[in-house]
């Protein structure tokens, strides 16, 4: 059933966020440390295990792949709720530092990709 896939996804999501929050508290910061990443790893691991046991039929998979496919619409909605007005209205320091940080980071992508090759 489709709901099994959605529920599996929800289980990974909640567990991941919980562990991320715990990890943050452990080292004393007020932020979730990698909760989403942990949830992703859990989903990868659990779904591989269930597939091996033939417990993940295509209909259950649909409960996960639907959310994966709805990702772009969610991102479009996210863009529509950004505080673009105050970002552009912010004045020199914010505009210049935001711009430079992004630009230099882009330039570093090919550099680091090469580092990894060695």
């Amino acid at each position: 059933m489709v709901i099994y896939g959605v529920a599996l996804l929800a289980l990974c999501f909640i567990t991941g966020l919980f562990l991320g929050e715990l990890l943050g508290r452990l080292i004393g910061i007020e932020a979730n440390l990698g909760g989403v990443g942990i949830a992703m790893l859990l989903l990868i691991g659990l779904s591989a295990y269930l597939k091996k046991k033939i417990l993940l039929p295509p209909i259950t998979e649909k409960g996960i792949t639907f959310w994966s496919a709805i990702y772009i619409p969610i991102v479009v909605a996210m863009a529509a709720k950004q505080n673009v007005f105050s970002a552009l209205d912010a004045g020199g320091v914010a505009l210049v530092s935001g711009f430079l940080a992004v630009f230099i980071s882009f330039l570093l992508i090919p550099v680091l990709t090469k580092v990894g090759k060695k």
Binding site: F13, A39, L41, F66
Partner: peptide, 9 residues
């Protein structure tokens, strides 16, 4: 975040 986790599938 829910959808991002789903993309890991």
């Amino acid at each position: 975040d829910f959808a991002i986790v789903a993309t890991a599938y």
